[in-house]
């Protein structure tokens, strides 16, 4: 299925601004290129504008100014639903349809695309996110939080999109599940050749999973570097402050280990 993608599409922001009617500026004149096949983490504190920037890619939010392009094509061309069907979208609150089985949830994108015989695809997608195939018949409320988000990921990948948008995807999960699911998504990204953009407030998650980390503050990109460069202190003041937390934690854990 999705393996047929050689690489996911590129994403480009050109002078993109989102200003709300109250005057608040969520995203302030951001220009940025994301290469096809990249795994990019958008890191920042709450209110930094990272979710807004992400949602302007699939038009859940419409920019006040500027253009967002996917593989060179303006996302504003054509109906929003057609654009969104080509983009996988996973977010913190998951939003599984409570009146549909897991299988129906996973298959919803296929159903929207007019495909009928989806049982085999659903089974394959559940395999992909390491869920037993028997889960297809369950209702979402019978699942744990981590299992639900796995279903969310399977649902987002059902139509084999090249681009995967993740908005705080693991924010509500316990640390163990969070780590497992993060690794699983990274593995899927590599295996399917996706372009993945992940919003997170957790710098450690960004550093571990992504190839490139963008740090946002007050609507602007204040750092744009590889995880290695950020850890080396090359991201500027805001990035350093965010990197300092996991670095300090790692240092203390190591100290505990050596002390023991």
């Amino acid at each position: 299925m999705a393996d047929s993608h050689s690489t996911g599409p590129s994403v480009a922001f050109a002078a993109v601004t989102k200003r709300y009617s109250g005057g608040a500026v969520a995203v302030d004149d951001v220009s940025l290129e994301i290469a096809g096949g990249a795994f990019v983490a958008l890191v920042g504190s709450s209110g930094s504008g990272k979710s807004t920037l992400l949602k302007m890619i699939n038009r859940l939010i419409v920019p006040s100014a500027g253009v967002v392009r996917i593989d060179g094509a303006d996302v504003a061309d054509g109906p929003a639903y057609a654009l969104r069907r080509r983009i996988g979208y996973v977010f913190q609150n998951i939003g599984l349809f409570p009146h549909m089985t897991v299988g129906e949830n996973v298959a919803i994108g296929l159903r929207l695309a007019g495909e009928r015989d989806t049982a085999a695809r659903v089974a394959a997608l559940l395999d992909l996110v390491d869920l037993p195939q028997a889960f297809a018949a369950r209702m979402p409320d019978a699942l744990s939080g981590g299992q639900r988000q796995r279903v969310g990921v399977a649902r987002a990948l059902a139509t084999a999109p090249g681009l995967l948008l993740l908005d705080e995807p693991f924010g509500a999960l316990d640390p163990v599940t969070r780590d497992q699911l993060g690794n699983a998504v990274r593995a899927l990204h590599d295996r399917l050749g996706l372009t993945t953009i992940m919003v997170t407030h957790d710098m450690a998650e960004g550093l571990i999973l992504a190839d490139r980390v963008l740090v946002m503050d007050a609507g602007r990109i204040v750092a744009d570097a590889t995880p290695q460069a950020l850890l080396a202190g090359q991201g500027g003041a805001v990035a350093d402050a965010l990197v300092a937390v996991p670095s300090e934690q790692a240092r203390r854990l190591r100290a505990l280990e050596e002390g023991a």
């Binding site: 699939n58 859940l60 109906p79 929003a80 639903y81 057609a82 654009l83 969104r84 069907r85 979208y89 977010f91 609150n93 998951i94 939003g95 599984l96 349809f97 409570p98 009146h99 919803i108 994108g109 929207l112 969310g152 649902r155």
Partner: peptide
């Protein structure tokens, strides 16, 4: 209706009519 469900319906690419009918 849980706003997350509506966001998912939009994010999946449902038209307004599909959202009404399916969700």
């Amino acid at each position: 209706i849980d706003p997350a469900v509506i966001e998912a319906a939009d994010g999946m690419g449902m038209t307004a009519w599909q959202k009404l009918r399916l969700v």
